[in-house]
């Protein structure tokens, strides 16, 4: 397949995943804003979304006050914020349009439909409340994902698209976990206190893992267990290990399809093995923050290797 096609598929998936995560984060922030503002951690909830997405500076450049209305606008409708839901949907649709023939018509319709409907929201944003738009985004991204998983030919395009999804997801999980652990709970002693219990549950909610955590660990929240769930648990579809295992799987598929090994594959296998052999106790011992920072950088490196291995970008 054309390298440009593979690259566009990869990015279509990333933007869709990004929009989905953003909608979930917004939903959690909204939920937090409904809770009486008594405990210390809550106030920074809106701001923490901005830090998660590395957008605090961009936001401050455009708005004078950190409040719900401004953040909503910035994260949903802003033209200047490259990761706003508006821009994610447009970027996903435009890169999908560039490779229309590599997508089934169902996937294209879903992308195009989201784009067209969002244009209507944009005309009168004041008429739509936050939960409605978050629901809408989740439904649109689920439709795109669903029609992709349901109908797409299991050829190389399928692998490139999925790698985009999982690399983006791993990045989102790592950042979110890092913000919650590091920004909100700077010292390890506070873990287990009454504030963090609520913080941790919001984290699980943001990653749509609230109920799944229950199923696996029972109702007891502890930082270790939640970290274990989101970093190392192979059953959690948002855990770092799960995501990297998926990326490695798709690189393996490409290897057997193309009949050659790639540098990207070597790196993914190495990362997968590291996640497979390390324990959460060791990670926490050596510093979760350091671990997550190093993971985020390895994950970026993996993107670069994929680009090089499959000739992305104009040579």
């Amino acid at each position: 397949m054309l390298s440009r096609t593979a690259e566009s598929l990869f990015w279509t998936a990333r933007y869709i995943e990004r929009a989905d995560t953003l909608a979930r984060n917004l939903e959690v922030a909204y939920r937090m804003s409904l809770v009486p503002n008594t405990s210390a951690g809550n106030r920074s909830e809106w701001q923490s979304i901005l830090s998660t997405s590395n957008l605090l500076e961009d936001f401050n450049a455009e708005y004078s006050e950190v409040n719900q209305a401004n953040i909503e606008h910035f994260l949903i409708y802003s033209h200047s914020n490259p990761s706003s839901i508006r821009n994610c949907i447009r970027a996903a649709r435009n890169s999908g349009k560039e490779v229309r023939i590599a997508l089934t018509s169902d996937v294209w319709s879903a992308l195009n439909q989201a784009y067209i409907e969002f244009k209507k929201f944009e005309k009168s944003p004041e008429e739509i409340d936050l939960p409605t738009i978050c629901d809408w985004v989740k439904r649109q991204t689920a439709t795109v994902q669903g029609s992709f998983q349901g109908n797409q030919l299991r050829l190389d395009g399928y692998d490139f698209y999925n790698m985009g999804t999982y690399i983006e997801r791993a990045d989102n999980t790592a950042r979110l976990l890092d913000i919650k652990y590091y920004v909100l709970l700077p010292t390890i002693d506070m873990v287990g206190g009454s504030v963090d219990s609520y913080q941790w549950t919001t984290l699980l909610r943001a990653l749509s893992s609230y109920r799944s955590y229950y199923w696996i660990y029972g109702g007891d929240y502890s930082a270790d267990r939640i970290a274990d769930f989101l970093v190392l648990n192979s059953a959690c579809p948002r855990s770092l290990k799960f995501c990297i295992t998926q990326v490695a799987h798709h690189l393996d598929m490409l290897c057997s399809n193309y009949g050659r090994y790639s540098d990207a594959q070597m790196l993914a296998l190495k990362l997968r093995d590291e996640l497979g052999t390390i324990s959460i106790a060791k990670i926490v011992d050596e510093g979760l923050h350091e671990f997550l920072q190093s993971f985020i950088s390895s994950n970026n490196q993996l993107t670069e290797k994929i680009s090089q291995s499959f000739l992305f970008g104009v040579q």
């Binding site: 397949m1 054309l2 390298s3 193309y258 499959f310 000739l311 104009v314 040579q315």
Partner: peptide, 23 residues
């Protein structure tokens, strides 16, 4: 068949090639 843009193609020797994920 593939839908290409100019930047996907290049000339080498006597032929035209497209850049693909397999070379």
């Amino acid at each position: 068949v593939e839908l290409v843009e100019g930047r996907d193609l290049y000339v080498h020797g006597d032929f035209v090639y497209m850049r693909t994920t397999q070379g």
